[in-house]
Design a protein around this nucleic acid. Structure first.
Lengths: 214, 214
DNA sequence: ACCGATCTTATACGAAAGTCTAGGAGACTA
DNA sequence: TAGTCTCCTAGACTTTCGTATAAGATCGGT
C-alpha cells in the first residue's frame, strides 16, 4: 500500500513486445491501475538500449516471440543488462516446458498471455518485489496433464535429432552438426518415428511442430 | 462527439475471446477511453447466447481462434443472430487471406491483434457506425510483402500435393489418392520446394505448417 | 560385478525421394 | 494457325531414407 516496499507505485517497468495491441493495453492497464511507470519497446535491441541508457528497471517483461529474442538468448542478455533485477517472459502460447526453461535460465517469472489483467497486475507487483512468479495452472499442468507426453520420453540426443528434422535437414547434415555418423542418425530417426507414432521423418517433424516443440 | 451518430458513447459491443488478457485489456480500454458498453464472453456458444438474450449489439468482435468458432463458421452464425449489424473478426496471427475470406463471408472488419489500442478504438467506432474496416497494412501486404503470398501462387494440384506432404504421406500414397502417377507427384514436390524455398519435402511441409495452411 | 538403458558404429539392401530430359493437353494472345 | 505459356505426365537415373542385424562403449543402479 506504500511505495517503500516496492509493491505499489513507482514501479519502473520495461515492456518489450512486437504486438502493438498487447503493448498498448498492458502498459495502459499497468500504469493506470497499477500506478507503474512503463517504458515500452517493440523488440529486443531497443529494449537492450533502454536498459543501457536508463539503468536497471524494477522489472523487465520480454515477449518470447519477438524480433531479436531467439529463444531464451534474449533473456540471458537482458538479465545481464538489468543488474540483478528481475526479467520475466511473456508468451502467447504457453508450453510448460518453455516456462521451466525460462525459470532455469534465471527468469523471475513466466506470464502466459491467457492471464487476466488483474492477475497480471498482481504478478507484476510480485516480480517487481523480487519474488518469482509462475501461474499455478502451469505448475499443475506439469504434474497432471503432460501437454505432450511424447517429448518427456525422448532422450537428449533424440531431441537434437528431432530438431534437425524440423529444420528439414538430411541425415548427413544432422550427423555433421552433431559430430556423428549418418547411420547413427538413421537409428535415432527410426526410434523417433516409433515414439512419435510417425511413419516417416516428415510426419515426425509435423507431430513435433504441432506439439509446439520447435 | 455525441451519441446520436453512434460514433461515441453508448456503443454496445460484444467481445468474445478466450484469452483473458486480451479480453480484459480490450474491454477496459474500450469502455474507459471509448465510453463503450462492453459485454465479454470466452467462447462462441456464450456469445451466441448473449446475442439471443440481449438483442443485437452495435458491434460484435469474435476471436478467430476460439472454442466453437471453427473457421468462419462462427462468423456466419453470429451475423445471422445479430440482425444485420456488424460482426468483425479478431485474429492474433493475421494471414491476409483469412481477412479476405472473412470480408467475403460478410464480416464488417478484420482486426489483427498487432493493432495499437488507439487504432483499435477508431476501428471499433467505424464499424459500430456500419463502416467496413480493414487495416491498410493488410491490403498493402496483398500486393507487396511476401508474408505468405506463397499459397496464392500454388496451382490447385500443388495445394493438394502439399496437403499430402503435411500429412506425412509418401509420393505413392499421394498419387493413389489423386489418381496420378508417382512420378507426377515427384514433379509437384519439386516445384513446391522451389516455390516454398525448401530443400526437401519435410522443409516444405514445415513451411506450410508455419504459414498455418493446414 | 552384473544388468539394463542409452548412445554409438558398421554392413547391407529394398524402398522412397529427388533430379534430369522430354513430350502432350489446354488456354490465352496475335 | 501458329506461338507461347502453364499445368500435367512420363521414363530413366542418382541419392537419400528406412530397416534389419550385429556389436562395442559408457553410465547408473540392484
Amino acid at each position: 500500500m506504500n511505495s517503500e516496499n516496492g509493491l505499489n507505485g513507482d514501479m519502473r517497468i520495461l515492456l518489450a513486445d512486437d504486438h502493438d495491441m498487447v503493448r498498448d493495453t498492458i502498459s495502459a492497464y499497468l500504469s493506470s491501475e497499477g500506478g507503474a511507470q512503463i517504458t515500452a519497446t517493440t523488440d529486443l535491441p531497443r529494449a537492450m538500449k533502454e536498459l543501457e541508457d536508463n539503468g536497471p528497471f524494477d522489472l523487465v517483461l520480454l515477449d518470447y516471440n519477438m524480433p531479436g529474442m531467439n529463444g531464451l538468448d534474449g533473456l540471458q542478455r537482458a538479465l545481464k543488462a538489468n543488474g540483478g533485477r528481475g526479467v520475466a517472459i511473456l508468451s502467447g502460447s504457453a508450453p510448460t516446458r518453455t516456462a521451466q526453461d525460462a525459470l532455469d535460465a534465471g527468469a523471475i517469472g513466466f506470464i502466459p498471455k491467457t492471464m487476466g489483467a488483474q492477475s497480471l497486475l498482481n504478478a507484476v507487483r510480485f516480480m517487481s518485489a523480487g519474488e518469482i512468479y509462475v501461474p499455478v495452472e502451469l505448475m499443475r499442468e506439469e504434474a497432471s496433464a503432460p501437454a505432450h507426453p511424447l517429448l518427456a520420453q525422448l532422450s537428449p540426443r533424440e531431441v537434437e535429432v528431432l530438431s534437425g528434422l524440423c529444420r528439414g535437414q538430411s541425415n548427413k547434415e544432422i550427423a555433421r552438426d552433431l559430430n556423428l555418423q549418418e547411420v547413427t542418425i538413421k537409428l535415432h530417426v527410426r526410434t523417433l518415428c516409433r515414439k512419435l507414432d510417425a511413419k516417416n521423418r516428415t510426419q515426425a517433424a509435423m507431430t513435433a511442430k504441432e506439439a509446439g516443440l520447435f
